Measured scan of single mutants.
Amino acid sequence: MATGGRRGAAAAPLLVAVAALLLGAAGHLYPGEVCPGMDIRNNLTRLHELENCSVIEGHLQILLMFKTRPEDFRDLSFPKLIMITDYLLLFRVYGLESLKDLFPNLTVIRGSRLFFNYALVIFEMVHLKELGLYNLMNITRGSVRIEKNNELCYLATIDWSRILDSVEDNYIVLNKDDNEECGDICPGTAKGKTNCPATVINGQFVERCWTHSHCQKVCPTICKSHGCTAEGLCCHSECLGNCSQPDDPTKCVACRNFYLDGRCVETCPPPYYHFQDWRCVNFSFCQDLHHKCKNSRRQGCHQYVIHNNKCIPECPSGYTMNSSNLLCTPCLGPCPKVCHLLEGEKTIDSVTSAQELRGCTVINGSLIINIRGGNNLAAELEANLGLIEEISGYLKIRRSYALVSLSFFRKLRLIRGETLEIGNYSFYALDNQNLRQLWDWSKHNLTITQGKLFFHYNPKLCLSEIHKMEEVSGTKGRQERNDIALKTNGDQASCENELLKFSYIRTSFDKI
């Protein structure tokens, strides 16, 4: 039985969820670079991206490699990797027998973001014989899940209580170790020597080791999670996991709180800001991140802002960003909400898709409305799209047979046209069989910064309504002859009103 693990408890099935942008060198404390989270699957090609990484700022997932063999891993080693800020997950990587050479110096898994409450997941690794993470000293947050690894031993010899604050939620089941077939031998045991430290858990006094050649490092209890030197002297209180010299914040392997210019500090002093819960960055760093993602459509890219001495992905609820200094300031009234469309555009074809934009005031991208039916549609669209004030790209209304009016965009005031449909149009209306009105132009103002209007096959939309939009939106004169079809717009509506004058002759039985 794995020490510190839980057996036999019912657990939810383990679901495996399925960018080499360097964020800056980590400095003297770390020998390499800070790398983003990685999802490495199918083959070993991307694994080489770990070569210079000291910190993975995010998670590391290595999974679904069915053609790899043990010899493929023999020359692979990433000794610079010290810390993973989120979680480490391995799933069905064939041929991998140990992690001792792959990650010989991995010391800390912070667990800032977890995989279903777990910071370390080893699942269905069919050839893994031992973990071998002999320098792993601290899992700051989260638990361990090690399950269905039929060859995995050296679990009962690990004292997880020396690595985690609590072992109650560890789930370590259905491994070879369960069948008591392992016969784990710690260093020196074969020669009758006791080389590794022994600890007591559940009444068992057991030597602690990761492999037959690597003991588990056990520091004096007084050192807590700070770690200790090879001689057993406690590291500085700002260290986490390990250090090369005692009581020196510049000799830590990793930091308990924050890293700044080669030393570990309790908090980031001005003019620095907390970033990702582990390091200090200056304003320029946060500003660069903001600008890199301002026009990016890459998933996970955030326009970072500053709030409460932190550089964070977005302002919290009730705050909006001051564009001059990136500071989050309290909103006066309802907060603006910028919604970034991942692929640059979004099609609204149902109430469900409209709900995804609920509360958005600025759309960074283009909207395509293609709704053919739905219950209580006008009210639903207004509830979900009615706060949109600005669209950076274009607005396209296409084959939306259920629409009679666009009044559900009740606050839309600006279409920038930074991206144009077919390279020309910022407003595009095609084949809307029941569209009769755009907006009530006596109450609604709309500016279209650039781009043209396109109207074709809107049989109940009168040309007068379209011409009014040209005047109000500032697009009059931009359109070419064929942009607004004269014969297919309003051709099934009563669009022309003329005053009919009647004269009559009164007659009676005795007068003409």
Rank of each mutant, 00 (worst) to 15 (best):
V34L: 08
M38G: 15
R41Q: 06
L44G: 09
T45A: 06
H48Y: 04
H48Q: 12
I56H: 02
E57Y: 11
E57R: 05
L60R: 00
Q61I: 14
I62T: 01
I62D: 00
L63K: 12
K67C: 06
T68D: 10
F73V: 12
F73T: 15
L76V: 14
F78C: 03
P79W: 04
K80H: 14
L81Q: 00
M83K: 03
L88I: 06
L89P: 00
L90W: 06
G95I: 02
L96T: 15
S98W: 01
L99N: 00
D101T: 08
N105P: 00
L106G: 00
V108N: 10
R110T: 07
R113I: 06
F115P: 02
F116A: 10
F116L: 04
Y118I: 15
I122T: 03
F123I: 03
E124N: 07
M125R: 00
Y134H: 01
N135D: 07
M137C: 15
M137T: 07
I139L: 10
T140N: 05
R141H: 08
R141Y: 07
G142K: 00
R145K: 02
R145Y: 15
E147S: 06
K148S: 09
E151V: 10
C153V: 01
A156G: 11
A156R: 08
I158D: 02
I158E: 02
I158S: 04
W160G: 01
S161I: 07
L164Y: 06
D165W: 09
D169G: 05
N175V: 03
K176G: 14
K176V: 15
K176D: 05
N179K: 13
N179Q: 13
G183Y: 05
G183C: 09
I185L: 11
A190V: 11
K191Y: 06
G192L: 15
K193L: 04
T194S: 04
N195K: 07
C196R: 10
A198F: 13
T199W: 07
G203W: 11
G203A: 14
V206K: 13
H212S: 07
H214P: 05
C215G: 03
Q216P: 02
V218Y: 13
C219Q: 01
C223P: 01
G227E: 02
C228K: 07
T229Q: 08
T229F: 15
A230Q: 15
A230W: 13
G232P: 05
L233Y: 15
C235Y: 01
S237I: 08
C239P: 00
L240N: 10
C243R: 00
Q245L: 08
D247M: 03
D247R: 10
D248V: 03
N257L: 03
Y259H: 15
Y259I: 12
D261H: 14
D261I: 06
D261L: 05
P269W: 07
P270C: 04
P271C: 01
Y273L: 09
D277T: 05
N282T: 13
F285D: 04
C286W: 01
S296M: 10
R297K: 09
R297C: 06
R298N: 06
Q299I: 05
G300Q: 05
C301S: 06
H302V: 10
V305E: 04
V305F: 10
I306E: 13
I306R: 01
H307A: 06
N308A: 13
N309A: 09
C315A: 03
N322A: 13
N325I: 03
C328P: 01
T329H: 15
P336M: 08
